[in-house]
Design a protein around this nucleic acid. Structure first.
Length: 505
DNA sequence: GCGATCAGCT
DNA sequence: CACAGCTGATCGC
């Protein structure tokens, strides 16, 4: 395949070191966007107010209707379709910003987020009215005086931002006040072996001030008992070793638009090498302030053999194409288990993409239990001999979720991720860690919505007994249930409103 | 014709 | 089977 052919086919945004034709559709779209980049408006300051004391028991001070109001007219998290009085963004990944309008901007109301997210938002949503942004620093609180759209009575909330350690600027939100005590984790990691996570735990416990969480909305992405992976710093060092073992290779690392910066920084420092990123990613790095002297990241391909490329660009075809020009290895740092489990470097290359190869493996495993525990002694391979997948995850693994549950001990817990590998309701695994699991045996396997409003939903029975839930679930069961749920979603299945507010007895 | 949303895919 | 994200098709104004 000649170079021109290579750049003409779909994954044409991986550059070569000779620098030819590196600017791609992605790069051009970045340039178009950056032209409309404007300076940030000075943000309105968030003031702290004394904690609003509320009776225990999950907001029992208010009538049933006010719980629905929290869904319909008070507060939304990672949901921006309007109709609420205050909006909260946990982090700037695309699947958490649906409803934010990139062109016409944001008009629905005050939008709370971290200062880092506020800094990045105008680059992703150029039309946003920054005067509506309400940055909350990690650990800080803000008080909200809202109104029940049903009763017209005032609602006081105190929200505290907790570092989520998922990607730069990611936050959890702890809500206390007239609607009870609710913790929305967003996507998070919880590596208690690291100082950052211990500090986040401290901040969380401090914010709780002895109060207990009525409803925990949990990142259940990897809520499956055998999904455990090492801390990120351990995996980062493994990636260093892999690159060092290929001194004459180009290296392609798949990353997203935000996240895994610490990995790239570690690689750069450990290997004493710059890292190529695409132009928008470079802007992001500079906005994050992690490479002010421009010593680490570059958009010049001639300066380095390590390139961070959009994750979707790292495929069998792109690697094969690159290897026709120069020896290249691919590295996929990802928590997705079927990428790094036991491929033994013998992937089926008949498929056009890594996905197809792994789908075959998943089907072969359907008869058995999923076993995803990571073995660091076995070099993980992605889909060819020259590619590697490592469990560098920005989401908490099962043991971390368990530790989190033990620290929080909520009255009840709900998963916030519907499109994930594990869509089993976290209550199936952590019900015993809930103080008052009022929905035992009555809950759907999966929450219908992805993220968003803060009103728990439930569906009448039909789920398993507690004993049945303890049985390890085969991947075929997971797959079938998933398909069913997806079809229901496609048909527009709805979950009815809760018959009574959580915690009201 | 345009933007928003959805479907499909990786 | 998809962490998050791209692309093209379709729909409604």
């Amino acid at each position: 395949m000649c170079l021109r052919e290579y750049y003409n086919f779909s994954h044409d945004n991986i550059p070569l070191r000779n620098g030819r034709s590196i600017y791609t559709r992605l790069a051009f779209s970045f340039l178009a966007r950056v032209s409309s980049f404007s300076l940030l408006h000075p943000f309105r300051k968030v003031t702290n107010h004394p904690k609003t004391q509320q009776p225990r028991g999950g907001g029992g001070a208010l009538a049933t209707g006010d719980w629905r109001a929290m869904d319909e007219g008070v507060v939304s998290v990672d949901k921006f379709s309007g109709g609420s009085q205050a909006y909260f963004l946990t982090h700037l990944h695309q699947d958490h910003t649906r409803g934010l309008d990139a062109v016409r901007g944001w008009r629905h109301g005050p939008l709370y987020c971290s200062p880092i997210t506020a800094r990045l938002l105008p680059t992703r949503f150029p039309g946003i009215d920054v005067s509506l942004l309400r940055p909350i620093a990690p650990g800080a609180s803000a008080s909200l005086s809202l109104t029940s759209p049903i009763s017209g009575r005032p609602i006081s909330l105190l929200v505290t931002a907790i570092p989520a350690l998922h990607c730069p600027g990611s936050l959890m939100y702890l809500f206390r006040g007239d609607l009870g005590c609710r913790l929305y984790t967003g996507d998070f990691r919880w590596e208690l072996g690291c100082e950052e996570a211990r500090s986040a735990k401290k901040a969380l416990l401090h914010a709780l001030a002895g109060d207990s969480v009525d409803v925990l909305y949990l990142d259940n992405t990897y809520c499956y008992p055998s999904l455990n992976f090492p801390p990120r710093r351990v995996v980062a060092e493994q990636i260093v070793n892999i690159i060092q073992a290929h001194p004459d290779h180009e290296v392609i690392i798949g990353v997203d638009t935000l996240g895994k910066e610490d990995l790239l920084l570690h690689l750069s420092r450990a290997l004493q090498m710059k890292i190529w990123v695409w132009p928008q990613r470079l802007l992001t790095m500079h906005l994050l302030g992690i490479d002010d002297n421009q010593e680490i990241f570059t958009t010049q391909t001639s300066l380095t053999r390590i390139r961070a490329v959009p994750r979707y660009s790292l495929t069998i075809e792109s690697l094969e194409a690159l290897n026709t020009v120069c020896p290249t290895i691919g590295i996929m740092p990802s928590g997705i288990p079927w990428l790094w489990k036991n491929s033994e470097g013998k992937a089926k290359s008949s498929g056009k993409s890594p996905t197809k190869s792994f789908r075959c493996k998943a089907q072969e495993r359907d008869v058995g239990t999923i076993e995803m525990d990571y073995d660091p002694l076995s070099p993980p391979k992605l889909f060819e001999n020259d590619s590697y997948a490592l469990p560098y995850s920005e989401h908490a693994c099962f043991s971390e979720l368990e530790a989190f549950m033990q620290a929080v001990r909520p009255s009840t817990v709900m998963g916030i991720v519907s499109r994930s590998f594990c869509y089993v309701n976290p209550r199936h695994h952590f019900g015993h860690l809930c103080r008052d699991d009022v929905y035992s045996d009555k809950t759907p396997v999966k929450k219908s919505g992805h993220t968003g409003s803060l009103t728990p939903k439930r569906r009448p029975s039909g789920s398993k007994t507690p004993k049945e839930r303890m049985v390890r679930i085969s991947s075929s069961t997971l797959f079938r249930s998933r398909v069913i749920m997806k079809r229901k979603e496609c048909r527009g299945a709805r979950i009815e409103e809760p018959e009574e507010p959580i915690g009201v007895t």
